[in-house]
Amino acid sequence: MPHVNFPKLLDHVAATVISHAEELTALDSAIGDADHGLNMKRGFELVLADKDRLAAMSLPEALKAIGMILVMKVGGASGPLYGTLFMTLGKELPAEPTVADTARALDAAITAMKARGKAELGNKTMLDVLSPVVAHLASGNATFESVRTTAFAGADATIPMKATKGRASFLGDRSIGHMDPGSRSSSLMIAAICDVLEGKA
């Protein structure tokens, strides 16, 4: 795995989330409470505001600090869940991670998120993106392109699902036919990370 240019990674992931805020909010309007894009945008703007401090840290410390910002500033369900994701990655990843390290750390993060959100695969949540991506990374034959494809396919797969977690679950069958906003934001972030590591962004 190439060396991580952390400031660039931070910039591109944050810019991707912020530029898709309206789309994420529109997805959330259909089956939730119309705030996912706004909350993610607010969280990542605060992450960007702290960029100099974060860039001076090691990768694990910076990930933990990002997780703390998201937990303390985003609110809603996405704050604790994405916060738990980043904080766990920070705890599990070495400063110069391999693909295998990444798969293992992401797997630990998924376990922590399941404990926090009490969700499982197939509940129409961001786990439906993260779980297949971990499985794909662990398979040993992942390319940047195949990781992106796996992430976007995971988000697409939430469209026909009936939500059983989160506010979308209150809609029952009416949640079917819409993409889960959290799965969309997860897939966008994974694709953005791939873009930077591949030198495309």
Binding site: A34, N39, V74, G75, G76, G79
Partner: peptide, 11 residues
Amino acid sequence: PGQVFTSPTPD
């Protein structure tokens, strides 16, 4: 109070 329709944060 959280943001509009968004839960408050732990702090």
